[in-house]
Design a protein around this nucleic acid. Structure first.
Length: 1117
RNA sequence: AGAUCCGUAGCUCAGCCUGGUUAGAGCACUACACUGAUAAUGUAGGGGUCAGCAGUUCAAAUCUGCUCGGGUCUACCA
């Protein structure tokens, strides 16, 4: 690395400009690649990159999770690990297909008709990396180091082959199976949805649906005899509630709870006003009938009477009506008994069933049961063999043969403007036919398709499942070994999810995705699950040989070249008994793609066996909390299923990024933050620092651009100024850390202090970073830079840098400040990789202490415990407090700091406090411009003292007497306090009982010094002598004069080291002041000559403490 | 509907686990200073029923319960 004689001085704090410069260097010097290769042979730290889908634009929420990933990886690299970060792209799935469909203006039904599957998938493949450039750009600009030269891409054959291998392993273990089940299905998207898709945030929405209480007329038979007898042979209806009236044509049963109490109620239909008898759960009577109407006036009821009279006729258990038959509610051609019999031979529908899922929390306690449209309905329907009717097709509309409802969409899936809700029409029909008791809008939360935003419906589908429930306990057990940040997500959200896990529905009936590698004979008797390309190619040949003809003719020569549809579907395999086998049409859930990345990214087990072994499981992954049931789950599931292992040891889940008002960012609200603009304007470092330090990553972040500005100004501005200050004077003095490291015991107190403080910070930062708490780490650093380094060390030490010769004390100062800056750049490197590197390189270019290309190639600082001196840090705090108090006193009496004062009085409570203060006395005196500090020892009678109980100590001892003692102490006189101090204890009487107070059980502090201006903070009190003697005034004048001349020097643009000559015309008193301090003045302003002249032309007029004078400052030579 | 987290100054956050008597910081605002680091800095001021109510306790922002408000999650909900 090229050495430089001078530290580079910046011309202004322009983070985006620095970053562009640093980026160019990184590229040129291959800094990232080198940061990995430099650690060759070191212990690996394994990180998995969750693959983003590049068919959407990156958002600010991607910046936060990537910052988190990046800072951990950079930190671990600096800690000596080798951290490879293979990037990846998620390329399959619904979002891509929907995007293509939208672009082509087609729907799912058109695929294979208007466009061939081959062309369609070609389009998808093209669309997949549509925004890759934008992603690459944000990756680069935000400083995210990830290897995108050789990323894993989920649509590649090698990737898919690993997926097939995993699936075949599951198949062999009997964990992959097919089954009919009632699944969430999105008619708008044309596909079933997995439970984790249904569990994406925002899928459940509150919607108002038309709900109906329908009346099913009981058939008179033996089972219902007791009901009909009770009403003397009149009609009896079972009441059942539904929020989905569109399922009523598919009704085949009514389910009740065996032990629930039901009642038969005599009343009227509120719509038709006909007398009726209805059955419902006793517990829900109050929902439909008013108490005032009980046993009301039946005779005078008519349509004008609002209050419905009602009487309970009979009461019975649900089990007593099991098996009762009823008339079909909405009979049509398509759902006739004949059709039911054809579909399910021997079915016995329209009966009252009993099951345990029925509750009396809602509805009527009688559940309308349509086996096709509910998981419970399906289960109970199967048990009683009531058949199954699916009166809605896969597009979400009624089938033919349902009269006026035929072919109508059951929900507005097509965004039709004049859509008429078929549910309302069904309800109206029921009302007219005396088959509805109550129809109303009902608000409830209902699942929606995460992609199309349309309501989901439950639908019977054939699907392939992974039997995750088989290893549930093991998954729960292994989860307990994972370090979750925050803990609650792992235990609560993820833990609960595992406890309530259902089998993973893998099937997707789409086109662009990983095909399920299962082939099966037409009769379904024989099937095979293919686990590799080689196995498939063997099968292709074998089938061709055995079956002959044109079978697989296009694939005989080279084998299969693309594992996607439609090619895989061309392949015919042959079963053991010699029958042809075709592939089942399903694709698999894309989440399987991403969950399999630990293996598929290395094409395991076909290649890279050793690499895989070294990089499984991951030490660390991080994504948004929305991935809890997505990637976090699928990674965990596959690892447990196939490898009986966790997939990751530590996982950090970051919260959502909200706008500054706490609203979710959405395109609709227009409150989306553009990450490009943010980074270009304020810099990646400020953005990253803000995102990390403002709130813990797992808390939701209210993103406010003002916060970034504050970080930029406050943190980076301060650090920048500190560096500039250092560079300015080092360049003057030629400091290049050439001298031997001066031992700490030869350095002044303040140097030892800042280094102690620095090492304390280093220690804490290491601890926080090891604990994945970057927010705490960042905040500790911020405090140090602002409070300690800039506003105390540099401020107090400025003179050391610009005064005097280049000797020991000055070198101490340079070495100390240099060490602070150098350590800081390394400390902040993980969070703010650009600015840290720029400053680090500027430092290292002159001193060559590391001789490194980048700060990211050096080791992270480690605390030197020997340098940490707690007492020292404590007394410096005393000095800061004392200074602050004196300054506030000056302010109170309006005496500016430039005016020297004679004395400060500090009462000390102990000798150790005095010793502590004495060691920092000079600093305080210089800081507040006071000549001397006088200490008042504890036994003086001069100051007045204050006493209060030490609650922690006394509370335990006294308990209930605490209040009385506290009151007694408030009454203590100065004499009482003095006595207690002298004796070490005090006999007190509380409520007639003696209490002995020990000195340690109270806190005594000085309160006031009569005749002095005092201020206190905690136990520290200071008093200031505010008398300005003529001598002090003269010195004040001199200082004021120096200050003004310095300003002139600066205004005139003189160099720091320029010597000057001065002519002054001043009135008598002021002239004397200046003459008296002539030596001091000349030294301060680098004047070789200070001349008092009787007359001045073209001088500058200055106001020195309300007296005017004229001066000419000229550069010498 | 349940589960869970959260509610502290105008804003962003500490403090709560382990209770202790003037509840802190930064930003913003106002005034005055300081400055050969000047896109900084200091001092002072206003600004808080620590969401509300009740309980435990000598003592509650802190522990418990309930209520209200917000987030997230779960749900086969008829």
């Amino acid at each position: 690395m090229a050495m430089s004689a001078k530290y580079r001085e910046f011309t202004g704090l322009n983070l985006p400009a620095f970053e562009a410069e640093v980026l160019a260097q990184w590229t040129e010097k291959q800094a990232f690649e080198k940061s990995v290769s430099l650690r060759e042979g070191a212990t690996p730290f394994v990180f998995y990159e969750g693959p983003p889908s590049a068919n959407g634009m990156p958002g600010i929420h991607h910046v936060i999770s990537r910052t988190l990933k990046d800072l951990v990886c950079r930190y671990k690299t600096m800690k000596g690990f080798q951290v490879k970060r293979k990037g990846g792209w998620d390329t399959h799935g619904l979002p891509i297909e929907l995007g293509v469909e939208k672009e082509l203006g087609i729907t799912k039904e058109d695929i294979g008709k208007k466009i061939s599957v081959e062309d369609y998938n070609k389009k998808c493949r093209e669309a997949v990396l549509r925004y890759k450039d934008k992603w690459d750009e944000i990756t680069k600009k935000m400083g995210y180091w990830v290897d995108l030269n050789d990323p894993y891409i989920t649509f590649k054959n090698e990737y898919i082959e690993t997926l097939w291998w995993l699936l075949s392993e599951l198949y062999k273990k009997g964990l992959l199976y097919e089954s009919v089940s009632i699944q969430p299905y999105s008619p708008a998207a044309g596909t079933g949805l997995s439970s984790h898709e249904l569990n994406q945030p925002g899928t459940y929405k509150d919607v108002k649906d038309t709900s109906a209480v329908a009346m099913f007329r009981a058939v008179q038979d033996d089972k219902s005899k007791f009901l009909h007898d009770a009403v003397h042979g009149a009609e009896v209806f079972f009441m059942a509630w539904t929020t989905t009236p569109w399922t009523l044509p598919s009704n085949l049963g009514l389910t009740v709870g065996a032990n629930i109490d039901y009642v038969l109620v005599k009343t009227f239909n509120p719509y038709t006003h006909l007398p009726i008898n209805v059955v419902l759960a006793k517990a829900l009577l109050g929902k439909y009938f008013k108490e005032e109407g009980k046993d009301g006036d039946f005779d005078s009821y008519n349509e004008k009477v609002k209050l419905l009279p009602w009487s309970v006729i009979a009461e019975f258990k649900g089990s007593q009506i099991e098996g009762c038959e009823y008339e079909q509610l909405l009979p049509y051609e398509a759902n006739s008994l004949k059709v039911i019999e054809e579909l399910t031979p021997g079915a016995k529908p329209f009966r009252v069933l009993v099951d345990s899922f029925v509750t009396t929390e809602d509805g009527t306690g009688i559940v309308h049961t349509a086996p096709a449209f509910g998981a419970d309905d399906y289960k109970v329907g199967k048990k009683y063999n009531i058949g199954i009717l699916t009166m809605v097709d896969r597009e979400g509309k009624f089938v033919d043969g349902l009269g006026e409802f035929s072919n109508r969409y059951v929900k507005n899936y097509k965004d039709e403007k004049d859509y008429v809700d078929v549910n309302v029409d069904i309800s109206v029909k029921l009302k007219k036919e005396n088959r509805a008791f109550k129809v109303e809008k009902y608000e409830h939360s209902y699942p929606h398709c995460w992609r199309t935003d349309k309501p989901v419906l439950y639908y019977p589908l054939d699907a392939w499942f992974i039997k995750t429930t088989a290893i549930k306990d093991r998954m729960v057990e292994l989860n307990k070994t994972i370090n979750w940040k925050p803990k609650s997500t792992g235990e609560g959200r993820f833990g609960n999810w595992l406890e309530n896990m259902v089998d993973w529905n893998l099937s997707r009936s789409r086109y662009w995705g990983t095909p399920l590698p299962v082939w099966r004979t037409e009769d379904g008797e024989e099937e095979i699950c293919i686990g590799s390309i080689e196995e498939l190619n063997r099968g292709i040949k074998r089938a061709s040989e055995i079956l002959g003809g044109d079978v697989n003719k296009n694939y005989l020569h080279e084998g299969i070249l693309d594992l996607h549809k439609p090619y895989v579907d061309d392949i015919i395999l042959v079963s053991k008994s010699g029958k042809p086998m075709k592939r089942v049409p399903d694709l698999i859930d894309v989440w399987f793609d991403s969950g399999a990345m630990p293996y598929a990214q290395w094409h395991f087990p076909f290649e890279n066996k050793e690499t895989f072994k070294q990089s499984f499981p991951a030490d660390f992954i991080a994504e948004g909390v929305d991935q809890t049931r997505g990637w976090f789950y699928t990674l965990h599931a596959i690892a447990c299923l196939v490898f009986d292992s966790v997939a990751y040891k530590t996982v950090v889940s970051n919260g959502l990024v909200l706008d500054k008002n706490g609203n979710k960012m959405s395109k609709r609200l227009g409150n989306v933050v553009d990450p490009f603009k943010t980074i270009e304007t304020y810099g990646a470092d400020a953005t990253r620092w803000y995102l990390i330090t403002n709130a813990s990553p797992w808390d939701n972040l209210k993103f406010d651009i003002e916060g970034i500005k504050e970080v930029q100004r406050k943190f980076f501005g301060t650090l920048y100024n500190t560096y500039q200050f250092f560079a300015l004077y080092s360049n003057v003095d030629g400091f290049a850390f050439k001298e031997a490291y001066i031992p700490l015991n030869e350095r002044p107190e303040i140097d030892r202090w800042i280094l102690s403080s620095l090492n304390t910070v280093v220690k804490k930062v290491n601890e926080y970073m090891d604990d994945y708490e970057p927010t705490q780490a960042g905040r500790v650093i911020e405090d140090f830079v602002d409070e300690h380094l800039s506003n105390w060390y540099v401020r107090l030490c400025r003179r050391r840098f610009w005064k005097g010769e280049y000797e020991q004390d000055k070198i101490c100062a340079y070495q100390t400040l240099y060490e602070c800056l150098e350590t800081l750049t390394r400390l902040i490197a993980p969070i703010s990789p650009f600015f840290s590197d720029a400053v680090f390189q500027n430092l290292d270019a002159v001193t060559g202490r590391f001789n490194a290309v980048s700060v990211h190639h050096v080791d992270f600082p480690v605390a030197n415990e020997a340098v940490i001196d707690e007492l020292l840090e404590e007394r410096m705090q005393l000095a800061q407090d004392a200074s602050s108090l004196v300054l506030s006193l000056r302010k109170k009496v309006n005496i500016k700091v430039r005016q020297p004062l004679q004395k400060v009085l500090i009462p000390v409570l102990s000798t150790s406090m005095k010793e502590q203060l004495q060691k920092v006395e000079d600093l305080v005196k210089a800081e507040v411009n006071v000549k001397e500090i006088e200490y008042l020892s504890p036994d003086n009678t001069f100051i007045s003292k204050k006493i209060k109980p030490n609650f922690v100590a006394l509370g335990k001892k006294l308990g209930p007497k605490m209040k009385a003692v506290s009151a007694a102490l408030a009454q203590f006189t100065q004499e009482d306090i003095a006595l207690l101090e002298k004796e070490g204890q005090y006999n007190l009487s509380v409520d007639g009982e003696p209490v002995i107070l020990q000195i340690a059980e109270v806190e005594i502090s000085s309160e006031d010094i009569p005749g002095w201006t005092v201020a206190n903070k905690g136990s520290l009190t200071v008093a200031l002598d505010v008398t300005v003697t003529p001598e002090l005034e003269a010195e004040g004048n001199a200082r004021e004069f120096v200050n003004r001349v310095q300003k002139i020097r600066k205004d005139k643009g003189f160099d720091l080291t320029d010597r000057v000559e001065i002519k002054v015309l001043a009135p008598g008193g002021l002239k004397d002041s200046l003459a008296q301090f002539k030596t001091y003045i000349c030294a301060e302003i680098l004047a070789d000559k200070l001349e008092f002249v009787p007359e001045i032309q073209d001088g500058i007029e200055l106001d020195i403490n309300d007296v005017l004078l004229n001066v000419i400052v000229s550069k010498k030579g």
